[in-house]
């Protein structure tokens, strides 16, 4: 089908303009800003002064930023293990042919993904974890255990991760279900005819064939965990707390919030963004290497 050049241009140019304004230019400018002392956000490039790695050194020396990186790493690891574990478990159960209420359970587990994270976060904060009348302490009371301070300094970080994981499991479950459903029927039939039991089919066929899907989920989680912010903000609404601070929260606080200071400018904030993006790139390319999907890919 031949279409006129004008027609093609009219249809594709708006999309290209959007890409240029929202992605190409901002990414380039953020990269540049991270190496300059820039002043305000609208300061023209001619007034910037080259600062070399000063912005990066400044954030690297900040205890808040280091604490944020450390929290981010722990969110990535612990959150990753539990989020992928639960979503894989639910995916395997809910892709079984004769499970009852398949669609209902899928929809319920996916539900937190369509709700505002701020709203669910507040439900956790003010109901589930509440010291006086909360759900968890209510359960503890039934077993005669003393109530716990879930939002105290010791448990807050774990409480925050648990709430965040609860929110994402449904999404990864759906990705895994997509992977399970792409496994050819005849492979399973052959295994059944050869007398494989359910456990053998799971460990010898399903899981190895899910390698590619696991890579996808792991990559998604990495991108989410490195940009972790909403939950941190909901769990410490007033300012920063060392138990919940994350790099993006740090960026927000130095630019707009409680950590503003004269020597910190937009350039410093840009440096945080560049660093986080670099970490994401390094880790996702490592994941790509580690999960080299060869002939097993479906």
């Amino acid at each position: 089908m031949k279409k006129s050049k004008t027609f093609i241009a009219c249809f594709i140019v708006p999309c290209l303009i959007v890409l240029a304004i929202t992605y190409f230019y901002p990414v380039a400018r953020t990269l540049c800003m991270s190496f300059f002392k820039t002043g305000s956000v609208t300061a023209p490039v001619s007034t910037w002064t080259f600062a070399g790695l000063a912005n990066f050194k400044r954030i690297a020396a900040s205890p808040d930023f280091r604490r944020g990186l450390w929290n981010m790493l722990r969110i990535w690891i612990f959150g990753g293990v539990f989020a992928i574990g639960f979503s894989l478990l639910f995916a395997v159960i809910l892709s079984h042919k004769s499970i009852r209420g398949k669609h209902f359970f899928r929809a319920i587990i996916y539900l937190p993904n369509v709700i505002s994270a701020v709203a669910i976060g507040n439900a956790w904060l003010y109901y589930v974890y509440n010291y006086d009348f909360g759900m968890l302490n209510g359960v503890l009371k039934v077993f005669g255990i003393e109530p716990l301070k879930w939002l105290g300094p010791d448990l807050k970080f774990g409480a925050m991760i648990a709430a965040a994981i609860f929110g994402v499991v449904g999404y990864y479950m759906m990705v895994f279900i997509g992977g399970v459903e792409r496994i050819p029927e005849d492979v399973m039939e052959a295994a059944t005819l050869d007398g494989a039991n359910a456990w053998q089919k799971l460990t010898r066929i399903t899981l190895p064939l899910l390698k590619g899907t696991t890579k996808t989920v792991f990559t998604f989680w990495t991108i989410v965990a490195m940009q972790f912010f909403v939950w941190s903000k909901v769990f410490s609404p007033i300012g920063t707390e060392s138990s919940t601070i994350v790099p993006i929260g740090y960026m927000y606080e130095i630019l707009f919030g409680s950590l503003q200071s004269p020597e910190i400018d937009i350039g410093t904030g840009a440096a945080v963004g560049v660093l986080v993006a670099a970490i994401i790139m390094v880790i996702t390319s490592l994941i790509n290497r580690l999960f080299k999907t060869d002939d097993l890919e479906l």
Binding site: Y23, P26, V27, R29, V41, G273, V276, A277
Partner: peptide
């Protein structure tokens, strides 16, 4: 571009 973190574009957009 779908995998570009919004932290990398938001400051210039604000500008």
């Amino acid at each position: 571009v779908m995998s570009i973190p919004s932290i990398l574009i938001i400051l210039p957009i604000y500008g």
